[in-house]
C-alpha cells in the first residue's frame, strides 16, 4: 500500500486543477431513494400528492379520499417529512385535520406500526401510503391513540359510525369540535 501514497501527491495536483471550476453537486443516497420511491408510487383514484416546492421532494402533502368504509366521502390530508437518514429512519407523517379516529390523535399523530417500531429500510413510501389508506378502511380499536374514539368503536359500532359522520361534517363529539372534512 505504501506505493499508493507516494503517488497520491501528483494526483492531488492534477485534481486541484480540475476542480478549480468549483464544487460539484452530488446526489445523496436519501434523495435518490425518495426519488425512486416516488416514481413507483401507485396512488390510484383516491389519492394525490402536492409538492409545495417541487425541488424539495422530502416534504409533501398526501390527500386521501376513501371511496369505501366509514370514512367515505371525506378528504383527509397528511404532511410527509422525510428525514435526511431515510430509509434508515421512517418518514414523519402527520394528519393536518383534527379528525375522529381511534388511531389518530387530536394533534394529528398517527399510530401505524411501520411509521415507528416496525419501520425497516426495505419498506418504501408506498407501504406507508397503503398503511394510511387501510387505517380509514379498518380503524383499529386495540391500538388506540384517541382512547374515547376507540372505546366508542369497541362498545357500539353504530354509535361510532354516527360519531364519524358527525365529526367529518365539522360537528362535536364528546365535547371536541372536529374539522369539516366532508367534500
Amino acid at each position: 500500500m505504501l506505493k499508493i501514497w507516494s503517488m497520491k501527491k501528483d494526483q492531488q495536483k492534477a485534481d486541484n486543477e480540475n476542480t478549480a471550476a468549483g464544487k460539484k453537486k452530488k446526489v445523496t443516497a436519501a434523495q435518490l431513494r425518495v426519488q425512486r420511491d416516488l416514481s413507483e408510487l401507485s396512488l390510484g383514484d383516491t389519492m394525490r400528492t402536492e409538492f409545495p416546492d417541487p425541488d424539495d421532494i422530502l416534504s409533501f402533502i398526501l390527500f386521501i379520499e376513501p371511496d369505501e368504509g366509514m370514512y367515505r366521502g371525506s378528504r383527509f390530508s397528511f404532511t410527509f417529512n422525510i428525514p435526511p437518514h431515510f430509509p434508515h429512519e421512517p418518514p414523519k407523517v402527520q394528519c393536518r385535520e383534527k379528525i375522529y379516529h381511534p388511531n389518530i390523535d387530536l394533534e394529528g399523530k398517527v399510530c401505524l406500526n411501520i411509521l415507528r417500531e416496525d419501520w425497516k429500510p426495505v419498506l418504501n413510501l408506498n407501504a406507508v401510503i397503503v398503511g394510511l389508506q387501510f387505517l380509514f378502511l379498518e380503524p383499529n380499536a386495540s391500538d388506540p391513540l384517541n382512547k374515547e374514539a376507540a372505546e366508542d368503536l369497541r362498545t357500539n359500532r353504530e354509535v361510532f359510525k354516527r360519531n364519524v359522520r358527525a365529526a367529518m361534517s365539522g360537528g362535536r363529539v364528546g365535547g371536541v369540535t372536529f374539522d369539516k372534512t366532508i367534500k
Binding site: L38, P54, D55, I57
Partner: peptide
C-alpha cells in the same frame, strides 16, 4: 433540483 419526474402526477 427536481428536473423531471414521471410520477406522481402532481410532480
Amino acid at each position: 433540483k427536481t428536473l423531471y419526474m414521471q410520477s406522481p402526477a402532481s410532480l
